[in-house]
Design a protein around this nucleic acid. Sequence first.
DNA 1: ACGCCCGCCTGTAAGC
DNA 2: TGCTTACAGGCGGGCG
Length: 291
Amino acid sequence: MGWSRVPELPEVETLRRQLEKEYLGKRIKSAQLKSRKYVKVAKPGKKKAVKTDASPKQMNDALAGGKVKAVSRRGKYLIFELDNGWWFVVHLGMSGHIVKATPKRPPDKHTHVVLQFTQGNDLRYFDARRFGECFVVQAEQGDEVLGHVGLDAINQPIPWQMLGELVAERNSKLKALLMDQEFISGLGNIYSDEVLYLAGLPWDRPSGSLTSNETRRLSRAVGEVMTEAIKHRGTTLEDGGWRDLYDEVGEHQEHLAVYGREGEPCRRCRTPIRKVRISNRSHYFCPQCQA
DNA sequence: ACGCCCGCCTGTAAGC
DNA sequence: TGCTTACAGGCGGGCG
């Protein structure tokens, strides 16, 4: 099995809760930019946000002296809201990783940002594959810059009747719809497969064809999968991708119904789980339960 | 409007 | 043993 660490909503929420516990009320002493062209400064643009490279000084000027007023989350975006009018926003992409850096911890390869606090341990952000994203934005512009992020799958659960209207309007294939961050934010490849399995629906059903019963099942499945995965502090696959703030693995991999279980029996009907390539990504499903 | 592909990026593992 | 290749996939952009 290849390399993968896939932070989706449950992993980001796990991190958010831990960050809140450790850093709420702490003041940033300095913000060090360790690699060029990683952190951006964001401003609202005409259609979408404009992001330009931040210099080490720009980043430090924005963050140093700010006290962490809140650690929030929108979909897969993590937001450090500071009391000096700035936000520090992080998207972990595929391989982004935030750890509480105890003095013992050896330097991590591909470290991009180190935050030092006036008390307590540092925060380190590293991202080997650079699919992630960090930017600073002024708080009053934050909503607009993150305007493309759709309703959060758990912070703003959509009543199923409303979901029914929305999916009927859109009429795209279910898997694509669940992964569309402008529609519902927070689901990626792993959890969209888990949601479809729990709802008993195939990946290519046109969303407009759902009955009200199926819409209800889909809506319930989103909530249930997210809640369970958060309870287990996220999914760490065999190759050991996802780690939390304390460098610990999650436990939800033990509870996955379909993802990564090709050839293994369906937990419900014993039919072997199948894997197919859909638009260049893996999709796992039970051919019996999701007919 | 929607589906689908590409490029970005690095570390694994399989294949020759 | 060492090289090449495929694969992992979030996301924005482009094209049909």
